[in-house]
Design a protein around this nucleic acid. Structure first.
Lengths: 343, 343
DNA sequence: ATGAAAGCGCTAACAT
DNA sequence: ATGTTAGCGCTTTCAT
């Protein structure tokens, strides 16, 4: 004999009031309820250990206080911080988070959007890491508002974005190298297919320009976001006898490979040659302590994304017909993670 | 004018059948439905882009295909793997996961159990890292089945556990050191308040014994799970001139501290002195590449926990009155993460 | 200040 | 083979 959870109805019966009254009291909508019944109902609810059934509630209110978080892989150290930021902000407003790993697979992304829609989440925070840009159909079934983190993505229902100023980020990074006295800074880029990559290169160009340094094509190599490529690029620079004294890398994987090639060639990093990269994928600075990086504020991105979403959700409750096509966009700055050179 | 999602009712009307029929077809309970109507209904559902409302469904079926995952902090590298394992297994059976960070705070743990109960999750996977052992009240309101991961914990409704054989783990670890030729192995333990800690020490003792080595008290130091303590303990060993040639540490934090102290004293690790630890908190091997560790199979723990839970949930559907007091327990082995010594 | 009643969208007997 | 019906537990007008 399974003891069923206590319902509003039983409380109403025991308190000798209607379920409507109980409901109002339990939801603090009791502007016009006598203090006497209020206390009585509250006491009984407590005594009977009442737990509201949010399914029933959601069925009528049409919101669940739950948001979905779609990301490629929580094991990739880039994402736990985002997830934590989002959860912290969500729980502040008593929202829960359903989290989903897609491995950057389009099919799975779509499947999760479907599932989350069925679960009637109030919104979705969407993160992907792939360099794939662009079109994706199949998201159309959903009517759930979406916030994008870090990368743009052409899907429906996007009501907000939390991005990073990549141009500024590499500008700041290259400037840091300049401040440390390096003058001949090479740039190893990954693929150039994304705006992110183009922005990062642009920041490099700007930093040189603002320091009266000329941008030279032979100091720039374009490849892919792999450590293997970082090594190859360095070896190519060396072979071509490009007289660089520092390298700024398109991401941390490239930087790791570059450092390895440099060390294998007998250089000391960063004493002989300064290396910086974007710490956006693998927290390279843990693996390679001598690496100074430009780090994305992941926790904050998650936090702000959740905030954006919750604000939108709660606002919508007031003005239902408002199908605002406006996309809120927040652009965050990066931080420098400065490592001590290994003495 | 907001376009409302299509309901089963509208589909029934359009197909000129009853909602019951539609429901059965959509749920593959259509043993006795003519293929003709079946096809018709399916076609209409597809055309109208039907998305089931799981709130309504859950309200009657009393399950949500959602499970809660409570852990201290997803940013701690110990947990993403668990989370991923759990999610992978859950999504296999079309379950979703709500994830919660407690920072090991008892109040928050309880609050989350409440929230998850209200959301009618079908079960909870519970992980904590604190060395606190024992009693916790306030979980009693919930009737949700709980699976414990990694540490035991005295709370109600636990129907299963996924643990690690710590005795065996340190036994294997110490044996590895022995195989590498080290003979005089010291042990730096954290607190001894947990069974985990006692088991690890016991494994060390056993390994020595099985190799005809005598256990000596002066080779063992007990402190706390902090890198600071690892350093202190090493310095104490050194000062006392204990002739150790290797150290096995109670966890990875301790190992990091120990290695630091060793290096500061001019030793090479692991060439002069071998060091091992449990890679259970901070993936020390990333920070300290020369460290060989005993690693918990976190992914598998998450996976198996979800599996245990889902099996229990689906079994319960068959035999409702079965209030099995049996606690399923799975004990997993650890793996050795072997690092190349830095050449 | 409180109650009656009508659902929210779906499932699950029980009829037919 | 399909329809009728009675809820699941809660919120929310609208009465009183």
């Amino acid at each position: 004999m399974v003891k069923m959870p206590v319902t509003i109805k039983e409380i109403a019966r025991e308190a000798e009031v209607s379920t409507a009254t109980v409901s109002m009291i339990l939801n603090n909508k009791d502007k016009s309820i006598s203090e006497a019944t209020r206390q009585k109902v509250l006491a009984i609810a407590k005594k009977r250990n009442y737990i509201p059934n949010t399914m029933a509630r959601s069925l009528v209110t049409r919101h669940t206080r739950t948001i979905g978080l779609i990301m490629p892989d929580i094991v990739n150290p880039f994402f736990p911080e985002i997830a934590r930021g989002a959860e912290d902000r969500a729980s502040l407003s008593r929202y829960s988070i359903i989290y989903c790993n897609t491995d950057d697979n389009l099919m799975r992304e779509e499947a999760y959007v479907d599932i989350l829609t069925e679960k009637m989440v109030d919104g979705i925070i969407f993160t992907h890491s792939a360099d794939r840009e662009g079109e994706a159909d199949g998201f159309k079934r959903s009517r759930v508002p979406i916030i994008l983190i870090d990368r743009d993505y052409d899907i429906p229902n996007v009501i907000g974005k939390v991005l990073v100023d990549n141009t500024k980020a590499s500008y700041v990074g290259v400037n840091y190298l300049l401040d440390r006295g390096y003058r001949k800074i090479a740039y190893i880029a990954g693929s150039m297919h994304t705006q992110t990559a183009r922005d990062r290169l642009e920041g490099y160009r700007k930093a040189l320009h603002h320091n009266q340094l000329v941008f030279k094509d032979e100091f720039v190599k374009i490849g892919e976001y792999k450590s293997q490529w970082g090594s190859e690029a360095v070896n190519a620079f060396l072979k071509e006898k490009i007289p660089f004294d520092a390298i700024f890398c398109g991401n941390d994987l490239i930087a790791i490979g570059a450092i390895k090639a440099l060390k294998d060639s007998g250089y000391k990093v960063p004493d002989d040659i300064g290396v910086m990269g974007f710490d956006d994928i693998y927290m390279a600075s843990m693996v390679e302590p001598s690496l100074t990086t430009v780090k994305q504020p992941n926790y904050e991105m998650g936090y702000r994304a959740a905030e954006l979403l919750i604000n939108a959700i709660e606002k919508k409750e007031l003005s239902v017909d408002n199908q605002s096509t406006k996309v809120d966009t927040i652009i965050l700055d990066t931080e420098l993670t400065i490592r001590q050179s290994t003495k």
